[in-house]
């Protein structure tokens, strides 16, 4: 379902980095489940002290599918939904102004934090902090890098709070909506279809119809 949605949105290729990012987690899931599944005795093959089992492999496959489905769902959502559209729609549907702001700030903060982290690293490197040398030297640099990051983030929160209040953020009237959302009948039909699919899938899973333990 996720891959079909991605294909229909034309973002198949852009999903690849998201899928690749799961490799470390998926690899650990497969190794741990296949070789260390508790109580499993249906050994596939014995390699010295190692005894991978069919039960463990099956559990690993299920867990991997869940991880991939989750990661790729997040990818589809983030690649197809502009943040502004999401926030506008949430507010239009009655989600509280503060909640909408928190969600928007959290999403919007990521690129700013990345940019700020780059500036901090440059500042400390310019003062001779070795970020490329031996591991113990790099460990020594954690505080000079983390402290400005945290303090500037806290300062920014305080400044932003004051700036918001100064511009009537807490004022009681409902805010004027400036952004019409592009939402056609096809999108609405697809959303309802997905909702029905999720309900049916959950019901089938809970009732045991899918045969998933």
């Amino acid at each position: 379902m996720v891959t079909a949605t991605a294909a229909s949105a034309g973002i198949g290729r852009r999903m690849v980095p998201f899928a690749l990012a799961t490799i470390p987690l998926v690899a650990s899931i497969i190794l741990i489940n296949t070789f260390l599944f508790p109580g499993a005795t249906d050994t596939i093959v014995s390699i010295g002290p190692l005894a991978p089992t069919w039960t463990g492999l099956t559990a690993a496959a299920q867990a991997t599918l869940r991880v991939l489905a989750f990661a790729l769902s997040v990818a589809v959502f983030s690649l197809t939904t502009p943040t502004d559209d999401l926030l506008t729609d949430l507010e239009r549907r009655g989600v509280g102004r503060r909640a909408v702001f928190v969600i928007g700030a959290a999403i919007g903060m990521v690129p700013r934090l990345v940019e700020r982290a780059g500036e901090i690293v440059d500042s400390q490197r310019a003062r001779g902090l070795d970020t490329e040398g031996a591991r113990w030297r790099r460990v020594r640099g954690v505080v000079p890098l983390a402290a400005p990051m945290i303090s500037s983030a806290l300062t920014e929160v305080e400044e932003r709070t004051l700036a918001l209040e100064a511009r009537a953020f807490s004022a009681p009237p409902r805010r004027t909506t400036m952004r019409p959302l592009p939402d056609d009948s096809q999108q609405r039909a697809l959303r309802w279809g997905l909702l029905v699919f999720v309900v049916v899938a959950v019901a089938a899973s809970v009732s045991g119809a899918l045969g998933i333990p």
């Binding site: 901090i120 500042s123 902090l129 970020t131 490329e132 040398g133 000079p144 400005p148 303090s151 300062t155």
Partner: peptide, 23 residues
């Protein structure tokens, strides 16, 4: 040449002090 080595020859004071203060 590493920045850490060049830092002993070239000092750079950045525009925003809050990007470096930690102590």
């Amino acid at each position: 040449v590493h920045v850490a080595h060049l830092a002993s020859r070239v000092g750079l004071a950045f525009q925003n002090p809050d990007r470096q203060i930690f102590a």
